[in-house]
């Protein structure tokens, strides 16, 4: 609890009544050139990345590297013991690197396992989570963001933040006014 004059602003937060209103407002905020802002909704909205002017997530490349690590781990895990440490001759079959098929299932499984771990932890690292305290949680209406409310938040660190006047950033100035 701190008196209102002592509170530092985190950003402007506006609530919108529907997904379509949110979408149009997001396009407008994007066109006005804001940088540090976000749209908050209870579920991912189709096309919102485009409306916000965001590119693709880079997570895919990271997961690929994770998967590759798993694949290489499996190769080392299988061939070092089977070819060098304790070659186990079964059915008289060779144990060298070129007998791939019987070694393949474990390579496949470890590729999947490492990709999954990378994807899972990647989301939270990229999103800077877990973070249990956030200024937005201080804003009472924001509690409905996980239920049925839609918000746009413009961060106070945005270069254009100081010039903001209420109710201008969400829609085009109407003609004749």
């Amino acid at each position: 609890m701190s008196p209102p004059e002592r509170r530092r602003p985190f950003g402007i937060i506006a609530e919108f009544p529907s997904v379509s209103a949110l979408y149009r407002a997001a396009e407008e905020v994007r066109d006005q050139g804001f940088k540090f802002w976000d749209v908050h909704s209870p579920f991912p909205i189709h096309g919102m990345n485009k409306a916000m002017g965001l590119g693709r997530s880079a997570l895919g490349y990271i997961i690929f590297v994770g998967g590759l690590t798993g694949f290489l781990t499996a190769i080392l895990l299988e061939y070092i013991p089977s070819s060098f440490l304790y070659p186990l001759i079964v059915h008289g079959k060779p144990v060298n690197f070129f007998t791939v098929p019987p070694f393949f299932p474990i390579m496949f499984e470890l590729t999947i396992l490492f990709s999954a771990f990378t994807a899972f932890f990647g989301v939270f690292v990229m999103n800077r989570l877990p973070r249990f305290h956030h200024p937005l949680f201080n804003h009472e209406p924001f509690r409905r963001v996980t239920n049925d409310a839609f918000f746009i938040v413009i961060d106070s660190t945005d270069p254009r933040f100081q010039k903001l006047t209420p109710r201008t950033c969400w829609r085009k100035p109407e003609a004749g006014k």
Partner: peptide, 22 residues
């Protein structure tokens, strides 16, 4: 976002300032 039924749902519900301090 292109749901036709919501076209009348224009504008803003509310606007405010979120602060670092509760």
């Amino acid at each position: 976002p292109h749901f036709p039924g919501a076209s009348s749902n224009e504008g803003l519900v509310q606007e405010g300032i979120a602060t670092h301090e509760p």
